[in-house]
Amino acid sequence: MTGYNFAYLDEQTKRMIRRAILKGVAIPGYQVPFASREMPMPYGWGTGGVQVSAAVLTPDDRFKVIDQGSDDTTNAVSIRKFFQKVTDVETTERTCAATVIQTRHRIPETPLTEDQILVYQVPIPEPLRFLEPRETETRKMHALEEYGLMHVKLYEDIARNGAISTAYAYPVQVHDRYMMDPSPIPKFDNPKLESPAIQLFGAGREQRIYAVPPYTQVVSLDFEDYPFDPSKAERPCALCGATDSYLDEVITDDRGGCMFVCSDTDYCAERRGEAA
């Protein structure tokens, strides 16, 4: 770890990010602008999440990184190695053993505790972006709580597909106030956003940080006659038999064969008694 400050970023930068995090926690769901730094990885690889993790990690932490629920995909492996190199903190693949978990597109199946921090990588923090491209206008809409437009998106879903077909990045309202993009997690994970753990969201390219403090109310938007449905594949995991976890469809051959397995690899392994 010689040649690097602890967790790569210099102390002033970490202070700046911590201030943004504190403000984010104080105003749940509000997007706090911050001076995102260049990181030694391309945008889209989780530069926002990495900066937030760098700002919250201490030498005593145990760090876990998941990408789509898995600990061993390129993105997760690279980020874990990065922090091993620049912090020397212990790393783990077990959800319950970790104190800081950086995630891309999933919330772990194992319930989180008050001692844990979940850090999300966020590509586009603005939930209203695709409906209203002007940033000046979306900020005004947040400030004045004009969120009717969000329902227009759900209306379009139902009009086209007969049901709310938004399956990931499903918009939520936090603490009865701010409309928030929960990052591209499947809507199956939305109920888990109400959690005892601190949840921090970092968007590097868009230079925004936001947060959901522990035990904060998070409501998924819906219509009275089309209620929110956290759906998943209707079958058990082919490996561990779990019926309560989010499943990935894995193609097994080129003749249409496939199997459904837990997307959370640690959860699946633990159930099979093969915990790493």
């Binding site: 004009e146 329902h151 227009v152 209306y155 139902i158 219509f223 009275e224 089309y226």
Partner: peptide
């Protein structure tokens, strides 16, 4: 057409 209704709080698709 529905946007203004949703903007003032209509929550029923039908």
């Amino acid at each position: 057409v529905g946007e203004r209704l949703m903007a003032v709080g209509a929550k029923r698709y039908g």
